[in-house]
Design a protein around this nucleic acid. Structure first.
Length: 212
DNA sequence: ATTCTGATGCCCT
DNA sequence: GGGCATCAGAATG
């Protein structure tokens, strides 16, 4: 019989690290969702690290609120938020013990359930575009507010993070985070070099100072 | 390829 | 009331 060992599920412990380390660890890993239409899985190729406390770009910079509460909890949970009045973005929580941190899932390659994903996002002009961008990624996986706080390291969860083929260190590139107007000196966006699903960089809204 | 702009609602000040 | 961790469509090289 065909023996195909199931991919290993990531553990809460290995995600209980600094978001920068968790971000690099998550590249190449697979987020799998059991949707009503069937399974959809995405190989992560672009992520960003967010810290609490000292990171002005983080939702947790100004303390704990109802929205960011999950980021203060244990690692391996999904933090979903609603943005621009129409999109959802998803993070995987890292660190723990009341220390907030998370990894924004910015883009991935759909490796399972391409037909389902295409049906969900008819505007995509190519397979690579299906999950190219954080809101597109939540779109193909069907993630919304209802999934906030779900435990991705639980084997019985309808949403799981699985280990993938390791990404060679030389294929991991780093740069400033997309769409943030502060902390542009820190290269906390990480992506897999050469993947067609990596989103194009856009700088944050507030331009620097105007003199005069 | 890049630039612009409208859509749209929730969270926080 | 200001400002978003965005996307799609259009116009322009």
């Amino acid at each position: 019989m065909a023996l195909m060992s199931a991919p290993r599920q990531l553990t809460e412990q290995e995600l209980s690290v600094d978001p920068v380390d968790a971000a690099k660890l998550l590249l190449g890993c697979v987020l799998q969702a059991d949707t009503p239409q069937g399974p959809v899985a995405v190989r992560l190729v672009e992520v960003e690290a967010y810290r609490g406390g000292d990171d002005p770009a983080s939702h947790c910079y100004r303390g704990r609120t109802p929205r960011n509460d999950v980021m203060f909890g244990p690692a391996g949970r999904l933090y979903v938020y609603f943005v621009y009045g129409m999109h959802y973005c998803a993070n995987i929580v890292s660190l723990t013990d009341g220390v907030p941190g998370a990894v924004l899932l910015r883009a991935g390659e759909v490796i399972t359930g391409v037909d389902i994903a295409r049906a969900r996002r008819p505007s995509a002009r190519s397979t690579a575009e299906l999950a190219k961008g954080p809101a597109r990624l939540t779109g193909v996986l069907g993630l919304d507010r209802a999934h906030n706080g779900i435990n991705l390291t639980d084997p019985d969860s309808p949403l799981r993070v699985l280990a993938g083929d390791p990404v060679p260190a030389e294929s991991i590139k780093a740069g400033p985070r997309v769409g943030v107007a502060v902390a542009m000196d820190v290269p906390w966006r990480f992506w897999v070099d050469g993947s067609p699903a990596v989103s194009t960089y856009r700088r944050g809204g507030k331009r620097g100072t105007r003199s005069g």
